[in-house]
């Protein structure tokens, strides 16, 4: 399972910043509403089953709440809601991927709620294409590219962007407003 492989490397995630050259990495792929997404394995701390999530009032809807990760409280984000996809019921396969991103020099752990974890893929950088322009209606801001393996295509997420990139500030603004 991916958990074991990621433990050792996850720590380095902060230093291992992107750059097109580094894209030939391993990616953890998961499912969101039937579509396959992938994130750099370096950012992944661990994968846990769905825990009981405590909703936090006065936060955006895509923030599902907080969980107790072995005594540490971390927020859990539902990317589907973030990307404007319909909310679906949690199933037995619903997982929380704990990622660690660095923001303002601090390592921040956040849980990402996914429908199902698939596998770890090797995707070379030449197999990654820029996200195609799909018009206003499709959210491409947090897409790093499209990864091709055989005839499969996974949407590679810029997870730092999803969780930080102006998002926290926006989140704050929303709360203040």
């Amino acid at each position: 399972m991916a958990t074991c492989e990621t433990g050792a490397t996850g720590l380095k995630s902060a230093e291992n910043r992107v750059g097109d050259v580094d894209l030939a990495e391993k990616y953890l792929t998961f499912e969101l509403a039937g579509e396959e997404y992938g994130i750099e394995i370096l950012k992944v701390r661990e994968i846990i089953g769905l825990l009981s999530i405590t909703p936090v009032p006065r936060t955006p809807e895509y923030v599902r709440g907080v969980i107790n990760l072995r005594g540490k409280v971390i927020p859990v984000v539902d990317p589907k809601l973030k990307f404007g996809m319909p909310r679906t019921e949690d199933t037995r396969e619903t997982c929380i991927i704990v990622v660690e991103v660095s923001h303002a020099g601090e390592a921040i752990s956040t849980g990402i709620l996914v429908d199902r974890v698939r596998e770890v893929l090797d995707i070379k950088s030449e197999d990654i294409e820029d996200a195609p322009e799909m018009g206003e209606s499709v959210e491409t801001e947090f897409i790093r590219g499209m990864g091709k393996t055989g005839d499969r295509v996974s949407i590679l997420l810029d997870i730092d962007g999803v969780l930080t990139g102006g998002e926290l500030e926006q989140l704050k603004k929303t709360k203040e407003g």
């Binding site: 405590t54 936060t59 907080v66 971390i74 927020p75 921040i108 926290l168 704050k172």
Partner: peptide, 26 residues
């Protein structure tokens, strides 16, 4: 406990605590 740095400051909530059942209480 803090609600995690990813959460930032939430108005009205000063933090979280792990309840005896393992869930987080605010």
């Amino acid at each position: 406990k803090s609600l995690g740095r990813g959460m930032g400051k939430v108005q009205g909530i000063s933090g979280g605590a792990i309840m005896p059942d393992g869930r987080v209480g605010l």
